[in-house]
Amino acid sequence: MTRSVIFGYCANPETLEGIAWLSCFLTTGKHMSFYVSFGTVLLLLAITAPTALLFGFGGASAARSRIAPLSWFGRGYIAVVRGVPDIAFFLFFVIALDQGFEWLRHQALCPDWDEPIRQGNDFVVCAAAKLPLSTADQWVHEVYGFFLAVLTFAIVFGAFAANVLFGAMRAVPHAQLETAAAYGMTPRQTFWRVLVPQMWVYALPGLSNLWMVLIKATPLLFLLGVEDIVFWARELGGSKTARFTDYPHGDWRMWYFLGLLVFYLAFTRVSEIVLDRLMKRLTRGQATAGGEAQRKAAA
């Protein structure tokens, strides 16, 4: 059996001890997958944060629309997600979105299908409408699962972001909007040129709080069926006997999760410091209590 090993001395694990054993143990192929899954978490954050912001912007704009049904939709979106445990939404949306997509494809691809889709306790669509196709490679399944997870996160966090942005839009002094109207701007111009540029200062504290919450929600990826850090920590930490691995050990899951705990603590701490700096930069020269305090401190 050939093994791909990073350190040459790892070829014979049975003879190793102490640090050398540990260095070999921590560079096995499975551990590499574990390290890569940290990248999965960062990727999720990198994609979800802007998408959720977009959803939030849409929701907030809808909520303050003058068209009643649109406004109800926006307000309803914000209210429902806030009243129910988030994890219920995660579990719900993953199945609901999957079935929704398959149903749409079913309608489009198999128009002459005559059996009902819900047969008792089964959800049956024609083979061509399956997502991903049953002939697809493993990686397609993984990418599709990750895509569903991102969409679910974006929907749930979009509602939180909508709530923050809706508040921020209302915090912009009303005189500003009235002045814009007095200068003859249309509602659309007022919205894009006066309201949107000014709302970010008011939104930043809420959005940075949301970012911290989003970081702390990433382990829920595990519940959505993605092979993330929680999955690998459970997998790698479980006790292994010499029959199945070259590196037998006892139940080390506690230590793996301690590692994850430290990772998250470091991540939130760094974010906190960066966001503090950003807030200081943005409040410079603003006519708010924070800006006033900065001005006095400098004088």
Binding site: K216, L220, V230, R253, M254, L258, L261, L265
Partner: peptide
């Protein structure tokens, strides 16, 4: 306060469970 607010509750549950098992 920092440890419990800075890390996800989900990870805290997992860690505590495996700690108690050990």
């Amino acid at each position: 306060i920092f440890v419990f607010r800075g890390s996800p509750l989900f990870i805290q549950f997992f860690f505590a469970y495996f700690l108690f098992v050990s």
